[in-house]
Computed example of a mutant assay.
Amino acid sequence: MSGRPDRTTQHVLLLLLGVVVLFVAGSDRYLDYVRAGFRPLLLGAGVVVVLLAFSGLRGGRGETHGDAGHGHRGPAVGWLLAAPVAVLLVVAPPALGSYTASRQVAAPVAVPDEPPAAGIGADDPGADHATMTLFSYYVWSQAQDTSALDGRRVRLVGFVSPRAAGGWYVTRFDINCCAADATAIRVAVPGGPAEFEPDDWVEVVGTHVPPQVDPAVGYPEPTIDAASVAAVEAPAEPYE
């Protein structure tokens, strides 16, 4: 008896995989894994996989009728391979969070000599602060000339991750295409309130202070002096 699942089982697994891809791509859950612009590609891939599975199942039915009594069925345990795929329909893995971020040991990105554009933009409408991405704040705060941040209040949005030197980080992952190439961008909040726990999403409004070296990581980290911290809902698109 062969240890491989039979063709029917293989095609059913392929069908389940295609259904999972279509299910995830048809909701906002796909944003936990790839950039927003990848939805059409996921939908197209899901359709192709489902069509291939149906084609294989129809062809397999014809082979079974033509070779009745002469074929060998694969082990029934092969159907257990469908369980992990089926589980994804109910419990999809969440977006990357504080556990992954805390295991990043190298500096996330090289800092250019000059930020990519002059200024950090106007304040948010009706507010006394400017919202910045964590990546933008990271670049500006460690540039040779940080004058654009002088006297400016900025707003950062991300999730809480642990910091060995006290307080915590406001964190977000930057991705090029998908979660597989994600890089954690962290901004230290030394005075971060203890009421917030890892993976809580927060908005931090404060002012720039010089980068601090955390002995646990060994390189200068962008830092913000928080004037206020508030809980916020996790965004539909968690990555920058």
Rank of each mutant, 00 (worst) to 15 (best):
H72A: 11
R152N: 09
L13H: 03
G192T: 03
V50E: 08
V24A: 08
P40T: 07
A110W: 01
R73H: 13
F23P: 01
L41Q: 15
M132A: 11
P84E: 09
Y239F: 14
G66I: 00
P93T: 12
V229R: 08
T133N: 04
P5A: 11
G119E: 14
P93Q: 05
V204E: 09
F159T: 14
P238K: 14
R58Y: 05
S228W: 03
G26Y: 06
A117Y: 11
H208K: 06
M1S: 15
R58S: 04
A148L: 01
G167V: 08
S228F: 03
R186I: 00
V19R: 05
V91Q: 11
V232D: 01
A226S: 04
V105L: 13
P198N: 15
D199Y: 08
V105D: 07
D145S: 02
S161R: 05
E63R: 14
G206V: 03
G206K: 05
R172Y: 02
G167K: 07
V204W: 06
P108W: 06
Q144A: 14
A230Y: 01
Q10G: 14
A180K: 09
Y169K: 02
T183I: 13
D28I: 00
V209N: 12
L52T: 07
W201G: 14
L96W: 03
A36L: 13
R35C: 01
G37L: 02
L88W: 09
R58N: 03
L156V: 06
H72S: 13
E197H: 15
G56D: 11
D145F: 01
H208V: 03
F159H: 12
I185R: 00
A179H: 11
L57I: 02
H129T: 04
D6M: 07
C177F: 03
Y30L: 15
A226V: 02
P116N: 05
L149T: 04
S136V: 09
W168E: 14
D6P: 02
L14N: 05
S161F: 07
A165L: 04
Y33G: 02
E114M: 04
P75Y: 06
V111D: 10
H208G: 06
G126R: 10
S102R: 12
V170Y: 00
A53E: 09
M132P: 13
A95I: 03
P40N: 02
F23D: 15
S141Y: 05
A36E: 15
G69T: 10
G46P: 08
T223E: 07
L80R: 10
V20T: 08
D214I: 00
L51P: 08
C178V: 00
E221C: 02
L88T: 12
V209Y: 03
A101E: 11
E221Y: 00
H65N: 04
P162Y: 05
G166H: 03
L31Q: 12
H11F: 15
L89V: 01
L16C: 10
S2R: 12
G121C: 07
G69Y: 07
A45G: 04
G121W: 04
L42Q: 08
P215T: 08
D32S: 11
D181M: 07
R153N: 10
A184H: 06
A110N: 09
L96S: 08
V157S: 11
F135D: 10
R73L: 09
H11I: 00
G206I: 03
G46L: 07
A234P: 09
Y33T: 10
V189D: 01
A86R: 08
D124R: 12
V48Y: 07
V111Q: 01
G74S: 13
V24L: 09
L89H: 12
W79K: 09
V157H: 06
A68L: 14
